[in-house]
């Protein structure tokens, strides 16, 4: 960073001569220190998972959730500054609610990501604010069924004019990742936080673009990937938190919910087991690394 110390990093919204916004880059640094968060877009749903670093033994296990619901069909997980994440979720809920009051229906995941991207970007434009210290993963399922308008009371004509278009396809899974700059892309698999590199490597192995991974397998992969990525910060205790959103005819009926305990335990157990296997193979190597520290 050649421009460090030249003063271009002191105020938000100010470009350095080589076209960088240092405040945004520092925000990215804050994200890189956060617990790993991932999202997987499966063929019949979306999984969100986060490595929640336990900062104190006095914290109640399972409390202080890090993945939040927005409307009924969207979940948001973020890595970085937790309070920034909370504000981001609050904004997302307001957007979803305002969308509902305008359009009388759920906000599409893509539209939500777009609005949130715009919101985050605005925090790079003014000297009176600082950028968001989070990278957020937004996962949702847009109903593939024909949704009634909110408050709708009838079914409309069954035939003739005003009848339904047969076989029209709509909806499906959505997964977006929004960075401190406001940049966002849609992903098959998204990872952020400390263990993102490891997680991304694992996600790439899944060949998600082929669209073969089922939601239940996705949950198991998500658990495993969080455990693998935790190797980067092995000295810290962590809790795994996972949520999912299935298709309308799937297990969550299109809603964003916590992964049920049974499946969660199974996935976590399998993840731990895979780690034991890895440990044995890499035992000697690990010892060598520890010596260096």
């Amino acid at each position: 960073m050649t421009s460090i110390g030249t003063g271009y990093d002191l105020s938000n919204s100010v470009f350095s001569p080589d076209g960088r916004n240092f405040q945004v880059e520092y925000a990215v640094k804050a994200v890189e220190n956060g617990g790993t968060a991932i999202g997987i877009r499966c063929k019949d749903g979306v999984v969100l998972a986060v490595e929640k670093i336990v900062t104190s033994k006095l914290l109640k296990a399972g409390a202080n959730k890090r993945i939040a619901s927005v409307d009924r069909h969207v979940g948001i997980v973020s890595a970085g500054l937790v309070p920034d994440g909370r504000h981001f979720v609050s904004r997302a809920r307001d957007e979803a609610s305002s969308w509902r009051s305008t359009y009388k229906g759920p906000i599409p995941t893509s539209a939500l990501a777009n609005r949130l991207g715009g919101y985050v970007q605005a925090y790079t434009l003014y000297s009176s604010v600082r950028p968001f210290g989070i990278t957020a993963i937004v996962g949702g399922w847009d109903s593939e069924a024909e949704l009634p308008v909110d408050g709708q009371v009838g079914t409309g004509p069954k035939s003739g004019s005003g009848g339904k278009v047969e076989g029209a396809k709509a909806g499906g899974p959505g997964l977006y990742m929004i960075e401190p700059s406001g940049l966002y892309w849609g992903y098959y698999g998204a990872a952020t936080g400390k263990g993102r590199q490891t997680a991304k490597a694992e996600l790439e192995k899944l060949d998600l673009s082929a669209g073969n991974l089922s939601l239940v397998d996705g949950v198991k992969e998500a658990a495993r990937i969080i455990y693998v990525a935790h190797e980067d910060s092995k000295d810290k205790d962590f809790e795994l938190e996972m949520t999912w959103i299935s298709s309308v005819d799937g297990p969550t009926k299109g809603r964003h919910e916590e992964v049920p305990k049974e499946l969660f335990d199974e996935a976590e157990k399998a993840a731990k087991q895979s780690m034991v296997g890895d440990d044995e193979e890499e035992e000697e190597k690990t010892q060598g690394e520890q010596m260096e520290e």
Partner: peptide, 19 residues
């Protein structure tokens, strides 16, 4: 009725934000 239905739906959504 439709107004109240929407009001209750938004309340249900808000309540579900709690774990």
């Amino acid at each position: 009725m439709q107004y109240l239905d929407r009001l209750l739906a938004s309340m249900d959504i808000n309540e579900n934000y709690s774990p």
